[in-house]
Computed example of a mutant assay.
Amino acid sequence: MPASNLQQVWPEMNPEDMSPEQMALAALRHEIDLVDDEILALFQRRLAIAAKVGQAKDAPHGPHTKLRPDREQTVLSRVMAKADPENAVAVEGLWREIVGWGLARQGQLQVQVWAPVDPTRAFDGARHRFGTAAAIRMVRDPQAALAFAAEGKGVAVLAVNTEDPWWVGLRRDWSSLSVFDGFGAAGGQPTSLAVGKIDPAALPKGRRVVVSAGGDAGDGGGARRWGLNTHHGWTLALTDADLTPGDAEGCVGAIG
């Protein structure tokens, strides 16, 4: 390894005074520096492309947020399929940050979180999903958060493990909004839902979210339902039925 490279990674040492162990460590550090340079160049290139993508996006059915959950799902699934299993958690976290910063080049995402029960879990779920590039803040009024999302200013993350049935309004009052993600305990049912003015064609592939009258036992056609909450005869549930948002069966979105 050239002496100049040794001094770059270990400037306080004289190469002639280095032990074999220090020489080996310096070589590894130099290798990391080279990889960091490659990562930086590629990341900045990706950000530049993401900015162009933002300019090219065109929602076909009126104004929607620039979020494309289906595209994010595809990108993450492709990357995770290539990742070594022992690196899966690290890769997912890194890629969500990369996607979040790319989205920020199209305009910083504003996220309002309402969760009177276990607010830390809801906030952490939002931070993990949207990354540190997003502006996330806690709010006290779920209806105000829904209005914020309906205006296209950003998205709302709202708890469903509460006595406030804000989700009934997704059928009655907030038809322009769609559920596009859910957060909760690992491997469990979601305790909060992400809601936004999402192009229905851009919803992720996964379980549908339904708000309907009656219970959560399913429709008798073989499609299971998992109840999340109930209120005065209304039920919020997940289903594996392939439903279209806004249809008569009460589909209000999807969770990937």
Results as ranks from 00 to 15, higher is better:
A135E: 14
G196S: 11
T120P: 00
I136R: 11
L170H: 03
T191N: 08
M80N: 00
P165C: 08
W166G: 00
Q110A: 12
K153Q: 14
P116L: 08
W95P: 00
E97F: 04
Q189L: 14
F183I: 13
S175E: 14
L76F: 00
A88N: 01
A90Q: 12
N161Y: 06
I98D: 08
L146T: 04
R129F: 00
Q110L: 12
K197A: 13
Q108E: 15
A186G: 02
R121L: 13
A122T: 14
D173V: 02
W95M: 15
V117C: 04
G188F: 08
A135F: 09
G184Y: 05
G131A: 14
L177S: 10
R127V: 08
R127L: 15
V113A: 09
E86M: 14
V111T: 06
F123K: 08
I98Y: 01
D141L: 02
A144I: 03
V79Q: 10
G196K: 10
T162G: 03
I136D: 02
F130K: 10
D141W: 02
W95K: 00
V179E: 10
D118H: 14
V179M: 04
A88G: 02
G182W: 05
G152M: 12
A104G: 07
R105I: 00
R121Y: 01
R78K: 09
E92T: 04
T162R: 01
Q189K: 10
G188C: 05
F123T: 05
R127G: 01
G131L: 03
Q106F: 03
Q189F: 07
W174E: 09
P142K: 01
D181I: 04
P190K: 09
R172D: 07
T162W: 08
W167H: 05
A126M: 12
L103Q: 11
V79C: 11
Q106E: 15
A156D: 10
A133L: 09
S175H: 11
W174P: 07
A104P: 06
L109Q: 07
A122I: 05
A134M: 07
A122Q: 00
V89F: 12
R121P: 02
N161G: 09
P190G: 08
G187Y: 04
A104M: 06
K82G: 11
V99A: 11
S192M: 04
V155K: 14
G152E: 13
Q108G: 01
G196T: 06
L146W: 03
A145R: 01
G107C: 11
A144E: 13
V195E: 07
V117W: 01
V91G: 05
F148Y: 13
S77H: 09
G125H: 05
R127F: 11
Q143T: 12
P119G: 07
G107W: 11
V157P: 05
Q189G: 00
F148P: 10
P116T: 12
W101N: 08
G196Q: 13
D173T: 12
K153H: 14
L76A: 10
W174Y: 15
R105A: 13
W174Q: 13
T191V: 12
R137K: 13
G169W: 00
L103K: 07
T132L: 06
R96C: 05
F123W: 09
R137S: 15
E92V: 02
A144S: 11
V157Q: 03
I136E: 02
V99H: 02
L76V: 13
A90R: 11
F183C: 06
E151C: 06
P116W: 08
M80W: 00
